[in-house]
């Protein structure tokens, strides 16, 4: 267990160092930051002075190390556009994105797994065929189109739900949450559905495919030969085997939900990281872009690590021979 964990953690650290390097090099290669700060009016001497003050004349490796050091202490620099510490911006925006992503993931799991199981065990029913057809739409239709339809139907035509924003939020410590107010909860519904749509269809198809494969296994046949009922075979014997690979994919997809949220946040003007990122791209706000890159990678790497460790807990074969003499 220890070796397995250690290896995974080392890999994660290596990946983060690489990502750190890429985001660091954005500063050096994407335009001259000094020009951004002083503008074209400053003299060459001014620029040189600032360059020295900011340590930009140090060797690259020294700059990289000090960049990493700052990142680790939560100092992500200052936004060119807003002249605010990037860390403050992140703290302000992160809760919105995380709450949206959490709702979307929960929604896609709660809907996707049961529907996936249903379509696998009732393969020929009309309902299953319908669900699969619907999921094809979900896979192929761009998510922003779905978002716009949702707004058109539920906000514009029916007027039931807000079309943009987070509604009212309550502060719990530093965390601004939309879970505690009705308008916050109502605002979450449409963006969550839009963000969950693709994931749900993905999970349905994945669970179905895995379940069908598991049901063809010899141990399922042997279970039938022992007189186990369909219900026990589906939910007792097959389900756990089905969910092991599904867990991996869903875990990894969580990272892309956060990344995908850029589109959803744009459509719904959701004041989260994605919207911050889009605005930063428009203004070449390098510190924000670099921080976003590092942060999203950190999510991905963290989730990856978590999934690997979960795998270890679920699958006894990975745990090696230690279970035998108990």
């Amino acid at each position: 267990m220890l070796r397995y964990t250690l290896r995974r953690v080392l890999q994660a650290i290596f990946v983060m160092l690489s990502v750190g390097f890429i985001s660091f090099s954005m500063f050096t290669f994407v335009g001259d930051p000094i020009l951004h700060m002083i503008g074209t009016e400053g003299t060459a001497a001014d620029r040189e002075a600032l360059r020295n003050a900011l340590g930009l004349n140090d060797p690259l490796i020294v700059q990289y190390v000090s960049f990493l050091g700052k990142m680790l202490t939560g100092d992500f620099g200052i936004s060119y556009r807003l002249s605010m510490p990037v860390s403050d911006l992140i703290v302000e925006r992160l809760p919105a994105t995380l709450e949206l992503a959490a709702c979307a993931i929960a929604l896609s799991i709660i809907i996707g797994i049961p529907l996936g199981i249903f379509t696998a065990i009732r393969r020929k029913s009309w309902v299953s065929q319908g669900i699969l057809m619907g999921s094809l739409v979900g896979v192929s239709l761009p998510t922003f189109v779905i978002g716009m339809f949702l707004i058109l139907i539920f906000s514009v035509n029916l007027g039931w739900l807000p079309a943009f924003g987070r509604g009212e939020t309550a502060m719990v410590g530093n965390w601004s949450t939309g879970f505690l107010t009705t308008s916050g909860l109502r605002s979450l519904i449409l963006p969550s559905i839009m963000l969950a749509f693709f994931q749900t269809t993905l999970i349905i198809r994945l669970v179905r495919a895995e379940m069908l494969e598991v049901l063809e296994q010899e141990y399922i046949r042997f279970a039938r030969a022992r007189g186990l009922s369909d219900r026990v075979i589906w939910f007792g014997e097959a389900l756990k085997n089905t969910l092991v690979p599904v867990m991996t994919i869903v875990g990894l997809q969580m990272g892309s939900v956060i990344a995908f949220s850029i589109i959803t946040e744009t459509v719904f003007q959701w004041p989260g990281l994605g919207l911050l990122f889009i605005q930063a791209v428009e203004n070449a706000d390098i510190p924000v872009l670099a921080t976003y890159l590092v942060l999203v990678s950190a999510f991905f790497v963290g989730l990856n690590l978590l999934v690997d460790l979960l795998y270890y807990l679920v699958d006894p074969r990975l745990r090696g021979g230690q279970g035998a003499p108990k």
């Binding site: 010899e218 141990y219 042997f222 030969a225 022992r226 007189g227 369909d230 699958d315």
Partner: peptide, 27 residues
């Protein structure tokens, strides 16, 4: 199938060829 479930295992026991794949790996 429901009636056969009662017979399979209780009155007819079946052993398959490959013991490696006959057992569920996760239980």
């Amino acid at each position: 199938n429901k009636q056969m479930e009662k017979i399979r295992g209780a009155q007819i026991g079946t052993i398959f060829q490959d013991p490696l794949t006959s057992l569920n790996p996760l239980y």
